[in-house]
Amino acid sequence: MSDTFTAVMDQLPTADVLARSPLYQHSALRGDGLQLQENALATQLVIRGNTDDASFVQGVAKATGLALPGNLQSEANNDWRLRWIAPDEWLLTGPANAAFTMETALRENLSGHYAVINVSGGQTLVRLSGANARAVLMKSCPYDVHDRNFPAGKVVSTVFAKSQAIISRLGDDEWELVVRRSFADYIWRWLVDAGQEFGLSEHA
């Protein structure tokens, strides 16, 4: 809860206000073995803490229903996906408009040295799927996205399309990128360009 120590803020409008995700002007695209779409307005919370602190590990599990994943891994249930970012940092993503509820739940279950940061407005999720998604990734980042090195469930923060992204593999042909809001339009254009050879367009 909001206290004098940390400022927790419900940032969602009460009135009927139009939200624009970073890629609100770009509709989903399809091509030959390739789909691209924004998973807009997802809740995104950064969680910081120390895994040596059992109460931190338990608190996150209690609030999210997910165990803290280890190096380069993720844990997911129907609503939420928790990604390892660094030894003391995780990214939790989930349904839209749930940031305040989840942040509050986390803070109720956590104590000591930890942090929760709402970054829902600062980044967005881009879903890349299909048999050719891997080729698009190979054009965009130097990280090895081969099955043997990048199985489903893995999460990698890396350079991507001349900027950065957090890449998660959700399934055989299912990938998800977390990209920063300000770079999203550029990265989208990069992906569309990379998908050109697979006929990526609005009407394919």
Partner: peptide, 13 residues
Amino acid sequence: LEVFMNTVTDHWA
């Protein structure tokens, strides 16, 4: 020092 720092540049307009 017990401190965590994260960018929120893009989060706020």
